[in-house]
Structure formats: C-alpha cells, structure tokens
Amino acid sequence: MEFELFLTRLVQGINNGAIYAFLALALVCTYRGSKALNLAQGELAMICTFVSWSLAANGVPLPLAILGGVVVGGLSGAAIERTLIRPLGRDAHYSVLLVCVGLFLAINALAGFIWGGDPQSFPAVVPDAPDDFVPVMGVRLRYQQLVILVVLLVLVAALYAVFRYTRFGLSMRAAASNPDSASLVGVRVNRVNAWGWVLAGAVGALLGPLIAPSTTLSTSMFFTFIIYACAAATVGGFDSPIGAVIGGLFIGVTENLVASYVGFIGDSLKLTVALVILLVVLMVKPSGLLGTREVERV
C-alpha cells in the first residue's frame, strides 16, 4: 500500500516533469544557436494552441489542426528570429532577453485580444475519460499522459540523432560552438540559427495541444511551466537536449516526492522546491548536469 502510493506519486512527478522537459527542449533549440533564452516560448506555444483549437472548432480534424498549429509555430519562430533577434547581432544577450520579455507580453495580449480571457476546453487526441488508463502495478497511467511521454522521448531521440549524425546537425553544433569558424568552413550561421527557432516554435506548438485537455486552454496556461522549463534547462545544461529532458524529469519527480512526503511543503511550495534544486545545481555545476563545460586549453 505504501509502495503503491509512492509509485503513484512518482508517476505524477514524471508526468509533470515530462511537460517541463518538453518546453525545456524548445528553449534548448533556440539557446544553442542564438544564445537566446526565449522567455516567450510558452506564450508562443499558447497562441499556437489557440490556432489549433480554432482550426478544430471549425471542423478541421484534430491531428490536422494540431499540425496546423505546429506549422504556425515553426513559421513564427523563423519570423521572430529574422525580424527581432538577428538584427541585434551576435553577442547582444541582454537586448535579446529584453526582446523576449517584450514578446511575452505582446503575444499574451494578442491572444487575449483575439480569443478573449475565458478558458476553453480542448479536445484530447486519445480517449481521455476517467477510465481511459493502463493500470500498472496499481498505478493509473492515463493515455493522454502516455502520449506526452512517448512524443517527448521520440522528439528528443530524433533531435539527438539529427544533432549527432547529420551534416545539418554538425553545422548547427559548429555554429553554436564557434560562429566565426563556422562561417569560415561554409556554415550559413544565421540560417542555421533560424532553424533552431523553427524547431523551438514547432516543439512548443506540439506541446500545447497535448496538455490543454487537462490544463484547459487559456492565455495563462504556460505561466508556471515556463519557469519550470527554465529551471529544467538550467539543471540539465542549456545546450543539451537530453540534459533538458533529464532536468525536467528530475525536477518533476523530486518536487512531487518532496511535496508529498515533507509535510509543511505540500502543493503550495512545489515551485520553491524546483528553485532550490536549481540553486544547488548552479552552485555545484554551473553549466548544468549535461551542459558543455568550457574545455578550451591554449
């Protein structure tokens, strides 16, 4: 009985962690190239989810509606990079951060303006009634949550493979590692970084419709997730997709177990647990668990 309860909480933690990891993956895609922490990533995902919702509400089949949102996400990513980020130049970290904050507010206001402030219910891609779950050792694994986990794992495996084994991936890593040398060997650095934004926009737009059935669709649906995602990416290492996933799952599981077993913390102090983890990791290993440490030796 005790053990079953533990398992249930563990699974809850994994489910939450998968969402943090998913969004963190998007953050990593832009950070690697442009060195931009896109605080507006969650908002971009949110507005794309509204697009998918509108498409579905107008009779487009759900999978196609989601695909539509993903395409809009990718295109928006490219547009943001081209018009707002690239003109700031390569080493403008603070200006880029400010632009992202501005973008956060602008996208949020735009979504509120178009779709209004009321939360909407969002249809699930798989059956999501109370009895749609797989029981494993007494724990209920809901279909919808399994979908999120599977999509997350497929995505990170695909990203890893692309980064590691393709010419395009090598270009991306070269551009992230040393942009000047990269352009000397023929990498079109700006174009490669723009692809990072395309990927990020698409990944976020895929996440939104997967969580919206349970969070409900609203302009504030990503407010806390973006903070968790930043923590996850920091813990895992901002330039490592696998690190982001491990960071997300680690934070999700730890905060849930701590909240369940340490009496005074409970649900209200969960985010604090995540921030404590973040602080500890930053003190012990500033580049994150799997991030690239500077290995330069001259």
Binding site: L170, R173, A174, S177, D180, S181, L184, V185, T292, V295
Partner: peptide
C-alpha cells in the same frame, strides 16, 4: 582560411572538427 588562434570547435571531437571542414 586557417584563422589566427586556430578557431577550434572546442566542444566538438577532433574528427567532427575535421568533418566541419568538408561541410562546404
């Protein structure tokens, strides 16, 4: 061009560095 200071991709492996040379 071999740039001054070598312009190594420090976090890529030696072989990956060589392969970047062939990206063009």
């Amino acid at each position: 061009q071999v740039p001054q200071g070598r312009g190594t991709f420090v976090d890529l492996t030696v072989e990956e560095n060589l392969r970047t040379g062939a990206l063009s």
